[in-house]
Design a protein around this nucleic acid. Structure first.
Lengths: 208, 208
DNA sequence: ATTTGGTTTAACCAGGTGGTCAAAATTAAT
DNA sequence: ATTAATTTTGACCACCTGGTTAAACCAAAT
């Protein structure tokens, strides 16, 4: 968060802020220019057009999220600490960058065609992911269960509350402080919840 | 899904479709008019402006989701069947109206100020909700635990995959058929997962 | 047949939008 | 100091957007 030196960085910083909060359609090039403290024409000098600027921001943001995801899930940690690690990191990161996840999901809805290829370009290694989780579920907990569902469950429990934050906050009339505390609590609650759920399968021979 | 009779319904049907898919900013009045097969000026004859048309659609959509939520959670069913019921209904409903949840969440980000009051206007009775869940957790499972977290967990597991559908589908290269199957499986997997998790608390005296 | 009321339309408007361009300002090279 | 290349700007443009208006249409009542 240093004060950016060159114009390109100033633009990217500004673009990131505005795109994250307002999405592609909600963003005005003029607003980015103002925030970067430069002329609007200069935006188009550094980045051909709105699309390419957005693409740059999206790539960067997406990579930032998935790289940590890869790092954690492909590591050699045991499954449960791994999940704990993951949940900790994401609740922390995401609750300090509240718009990021919404931004990602939003982008998928606003511009699905263009963005599929972007996702493909950054190799997320989803098969490796699932295979690793499957193996760990089997070896460490003795569960032969579809790893995709478990993985999605983990993602859901960690990410959903942050996406739905404004909704939850309105519905349950939670103050900002209470909301921050809520997320803090989840760092402990979610891993416990998942761990309990996984242990619970042991009794029944629930092969899905 | 009958062919709508009067113009007002035609407009609302069209508006719903477009707003759901493209959100407030992404929607063009002209597109709604085209889809409804009428002149654009007629939109403003029936609905003052874009805002009020959007508000109407949002209210309607939001009520449709929350009313069923109220019905299920405030009923006299036992907690676990209640959860099962809820998950079934929502995965079914939402996966057949994929844009709805994204639409709701999106609206909260795009127009948070105006929409808080709308949410307040429809009385969702969140305290009743939580109190009922808290009591059932205690009486039926013997758990003294923050019902908000449990409730959010349930929501997360049911709703998140649908919101993130385009993302998941891209990342894991799932066909539409595989995706439909995936959601079908979740109707069983999610209640089991939750049930396991809740039963798991019994052993430890995990009071949060 | 004419009036009356609501309904629908084509044409239009002001403001905003992404994007361009030629000229000016700045920097680097000779 | 002059030239050349890069960076920055103000003015501008074509297009799109939500919204308006006056006139046309049409059914029912007289």
């Amino acid at each position: 968060m240093e004060s950016p030196q060159n114009t390109e960085e100033k633009i990217l910083d500004a673009a990131r802020q505005v795109f994250h909060q307002k999405g592609f359609n909600g963003t005005r090039m003029q607003e980015i220019a103002n925030l970067a403290g430069i002329n609007k024409a200069l935006l188009h000098y550094y980045f051909r057009n709105k699309e390419s600027l957005f693409e740059k921001v999206f790539n960067e943001t997406f990579a930032r999220i998935t790289s940590k995801m890869k790092e954690i899930f492909l590591s050699d940690m045991a499954l449960l600490p791994k999940i704990e690690n993951f949940v900790h990191f994401y609740i922390h990161f995401i609750s300090h960058h509240s718009y990021v996840v919404h931004f990602i999901i939003n982008a998928m809805y606003e511009k699905p065609e263009q963005l599929r290829e972007i996702i493909v370009k950054q190799n997320i290694l989803p098969e490796l992911f699932l295979e690793k989780i499957r193996k760990q579920l089997k070896d460490e907990i003795g569960l032969e269960i579809d790893p995709l569902h478990i993985y999605v469950n983990i993602l859901a429990l960690a990410i959903f509350p942050v996406v739905a934050k404004p909704l939850l906050q309105s519905i349950f009339s939670l103050s900002d402080d209470r909301m921050a505390q809520f997320f803090e609590e989840r760092k402990q609650i979610v891993p416990t919840f998942i761990s309990n759920a996984l242990q619970g399968y042991e009794k029944s021979t629930n092969v899905v």
